[in-house]
């Protein structure tokens, strides 16, 4: 059992938590962990926001059954049965020059540690964050603490309206080409960013978003095609050169379990509803 030392809601859809898990202490920027609230829970990969003296912090966006389960159940009992990690290949931290981070929704969680480390080793870091709604906008203050400039948009217009493509174009117009773009949070949005970067001749690193199961390179559910070769997001990724990723392959496989996910969420919501009724009695 791993203790959750701290949990705090950021928006109705997102929270940060700090867990006591000493084995995560060696995590480097770009790595993730796999969390199961109970041994029956689904295995949820979560980017590591930062390591702490006792373990690590995570930013979790509630997007389906398993993240909702974490949110609700951790309020009842701040314990996690299983945490695997750090997993994945660390992001290469070096001086690239000028770096632009582009995140969609929870993608910010994956960029945070990378941006911080890049800033610490002399890069000039800027960030563009796009949320679906205001509920997907969080941690902007912290982001500003290591970024030269931060711009936040939402797709529904609850904040300045826009999307990643518009944001990137505007940035290029006003600030010129960065030496590196790093993007995460949505395959579709990342693929648009990569397209634009390719056309402009900008180096881009992207995080692929795939289903994961064992997360140690056995099951192949996380397979992606990179430069014509099969790679595994869980052990070879999750970061790849954006221009080498076959985005169509990735996009075709990203919603295989969409129906089941809906069903699982509904089932869980029903269960929560029942629990609420019972406790009222």
């Amino acid at each position: 059992m791993f203790k959750v030392l701290h949990k705090e809601s950021l928006t109705p859809k997102a929270f940060v938590m700090e867990v006591q898990a000493p084995h995560l202490a060696s995590a480097q920027p770009g790595q993730y962990a796999v969390v199961q609230r109970t041994l029956e829970s689904e295995r949820v990969p979560l980017s590591i926001l930062e390591t702490t003296s006792e373990g690590a912090r995570f930013l979790v966006e509630v997007r389906g059954r398993s993240t909702l389960e974490l949110d609700v159940r951790l309020n009842e009992e701040p314990e996690i049965a299983y945490i695997e990690g750090p997993a994945g290949v660390p992001f290469e931290i070096r001086n690239y020059g000028r770096v632009l981070l582009i995140s969609k929704n929870w993608g910010l969680a994956s960029l945070f540690a990378i941006g911080k480390a890049l800033n610490a080793c002399g890069n000039s870091v800027s960030a563009l964050h796009v949320g679906d709604t205001l509920e997907n906008v969080y941690m902007i203050d912290e982001l500003q603490s290591f970024c030269e400039s931060v711009r936040v948009l939402t797709e529904d217009g609850s904040l300045e309206e826009g999307n990643v493509e518009i944001a990137l174009r505007d940035y290029l117009d006003s600030a010129g080409k960065p030496d590196l773009v790093v993007c995460a949070g949505s395959n579709l949005d990342s693929s648009l960013v990569v397209d634009l970067c390719k056309r402009e001749g900008i180096e881009v690193m992207a995080m692929v978003n795939t289903y994961m199961l064992d997360t140690i390179g056995l099951c192949l559910v996380c397979r992606v095609m990179v430069k014509g070769e099969q790679k595994l997001a869980c052990v070879d990724g999750p970061w790849f050169r954006g221009d080498e990723i076959e985005w169509d392959y990735l996009l075709a496989r990203e919603n295989i379990y969409e129906d089941e996910e809906k069903q699982a969420l509904e089932k869980f919501l029903k269960q929560l509803e029942r629990e609420r009724l019972r406790s009222r009695r």
Binding site: E42, R65, L213, C219, V221, Q263, A264, K267, F268
Partner: peptide, 21 residues
């Protein structure tokens, strides 16, 4: 391995009671 892991480790045969499909 994927099918076996889903079903035998994560108990997908109990889906949606078990969350892994």
């Amino acid at each position: 391995i994927e099918v076996l892991t889903r079903v035998n480790l994560m108990e997908a045969y109990r889906f949606p009671e078990a969350p892994t499909p």
